[in-house]
Design a protein around this nucleic acid. Structure first.
Lengths: 337, 337
DNA sequence: GCCATTCGTCGAAGCGCTTCGACTCGAAGG
DNA sequence: CCTTCGAGTCGAAGCGCTTCGACGAATGGC
């Protein structure tokens, strides 16, 4: 194994000089710099991560806590993880994978043992037991999603309230007057997953503002539940012409259910989804949708963390604006039926 | 930060004794052991990972190289990653996430800097550029999948040859005489992804052995391609009564295409899939399938790595036997049509 | 009852790096 | 011309842990 003293000897300098070339923390003459860099290259030197961490008390590793229980749409998570890993590498950091299961102890463990410098926590619930812990830890962290009590924490997510509004607004502009939000299964709401509530709130508020009739219904991602939900919805609101689906796995099932109930998309019913673009594009009828900007969230999360690690100030809350892409599933309301 | 000397002082022993209690590398009297453990608990001591890595030249971290390009079925990957993380934790190791993109340099980097003790590489291709590197590295590694030249490497995967055979065998026992394998898109075969070839080989060999007529066709995961593939297949083999699908995203599309072509499942066509159980169970008609044992592969991969780290001998190749689960999509061939 | 072990513990020497103070040298300032 | 300063470099002191050899005490064999 080649070490810093080897590099130093070959370059005719002291180890500390090599270190300073590497870190840039002191000025080095151009000539020395060149010699040292050549020496590093020729020997294929790579600093020992442990030694570096010990001496500098920086491990250059971020922890990423992922919900490996399925449920949340996987592709979104993968995109997110990929963006985190890639962005972290761009800042000379690596990513340690922690599972949700490890819970608070896991966070404490990697923090106390100085395995990582900072934490990214995904799938944050409204009442998340990890929130107080993260506040107390000496390590910087970024949460994906917002707990009920977010002060003192740095959080980032798609702006779901605005997302609900955007969907309604799009339908309103097309002339729709009676709309519904088909959301996540009841247990997601019960679990207190903030985004579900927020979308519903934005949806309802915007509908009221536009003077539209609106309903919010949860929906299990099964064929039967989709069928039943749609039937009930159409029974209660026979003049329904617009629907927003915020439930990825149920999207195809609901589409199918609407069609079986005699509603053609988009002729009789305009459909907007909140889901990854990929899914919206590949549906039988491409669906107008607000994308989940997973990659951007991941990238921004890492940037926030890097800022915090370098004592740069960061905003407490980062809400990414929703972007609605029009596809074939929405159309102006048939003027007079 | 509480360190080993603090623990030692409070327990009335030397730091080395604390270290030996922690590692169990020397015998310690029960009384001392108890005092030290109490001291550790009371102070909430956690060894500094960097210091430990430096002194012991063991980081207790495994690298997991994941293909974050999508394509391969995501849920399978997630299950796999989850199993790796969980099993690693069971052996007191953590998992560092590397993306496929980082390629060989990434492997070299984490190896040379002693960031990790061992490597798990997913999505191995038949002609994988990383194979020679892994052979040369001083770190133990396990590959998920088999490269063409596998000697000197430790590999693990589902036994795809046996999988192809198992599917045929199941169909044969049900009386089918003319069967087809609908596989991955052509580019997967071209890329040299071993598992596709191996399934086809097992399938073809078994069909010959049973004296059955057999065909192998690739299929793109699009509605149009599925339609076309099925039409061609039925045109060329009008007496087809059994099909094996080894292409997760195309499974629903192919099922649909068969039905549109007038083949009811399982009355007219018995369908076997090679796919995660979850997918097979939730199809419109639950599909008889050979599961991809992602979790088991992940777990076994870590176990293999741990064995290698402890200088225990391990087999070069581990092939997990396929397990076929009967569901509603296969039935005896209609005796006389 | 004496020597040879074994058991349990300690002290000290690193592991490879960063960083702080100190030092040298040449340029700038009075 | 002497002082002051900054740029550039070095040496040494750790960072917190593991591990090796050594040592005293207890044990067992003869």
């Amino acid at each position: 194994m080649v070490k810093i003293t080897d590099v130093a000897r070959r370059a005719g300098v002291s180890p500390s000089t090599v270190s300073y070339v590497l870190s840039g923390k002191r000025s080095i003459s151009a000539a020395t710099q060149r010699r040292v860099e050549a020496s590093i290259r020729e020997l294929g030197y790579r600093p020992h991560a442990g030694a570096r961490a010990l001496a500098s008390s920086r491990s250059n590793v971020l922890a990423l806590v992922m919900p490996l229980r399925s449920g949340i749409h996987l592709p979104v998570q993968m995109q997110f993880a990929g963006a985190v890993a890639t962005t972290a590498r761009g800042h000379d950091h690596d990513v340690l994978l922690l599972t949700q299961e490890e819970g608070e102890d896991g966070l404490r463990r990697v923090a106390d043992s100085a395995l990582v410098d900072a934490l990214i926590v995904m799938d944050v619930q409204l009442r998340d037991a990890r929130a107080p812990l993260l506040r107390a830890l000496p390590l910087p962290s970024v949460l994906i999603g917002f707990p009920a009590e977010a002060d003192g924490l740095t959080c980032i997510d798609l702006d779901f309230t605005a997302t609900g509004e955007t969907c309604v607004s799009h339908l309103a502009q097309l002339g729709h007057r009676c709309v519904a939000l088909l959301g996540s299964p009841p247990e997601v709401y019960a679990r207190g997953t903030g985004f579900a509530q927020r979308t519903a709130a934005g949806f309802t508020a915007a509908a009221r503002r536009y003077g539209m009739t609106s309903t919010v219904l949860p929906c299990e991602p099964t064929r039967a539940a989709a069928r039943e939900t749609v039937d009930r919805l159409l029974h209660d609101h026979p003049d329904l012409t617009g629907a927003v689906v915020h439930n990825e796995p149920a999207l195809p099932l609901l589409t199918e259910a609407f069609q079986q109930a005699g509603m053609r998309v988009p002729e009789d019913l305009s459909l907007v989804a909140v889901c990854p673009d990929e899914l919206a594009e590949n549906a039988a009828v491409p669906v107008t949708s607000v994308a989940i900007p997973a990659a951007e969230v991941g990238e921004r999360a890492v940037e926030l963390l890097m800022a915090k690690l370098n004592d740069r100030p960061v905003p407490d809350a980062t809400l990414l604006p929703p972007v609605l892409t029009r596809r074939a599933s929405t159309a102006p309301r048939a003027s007079a039926s």
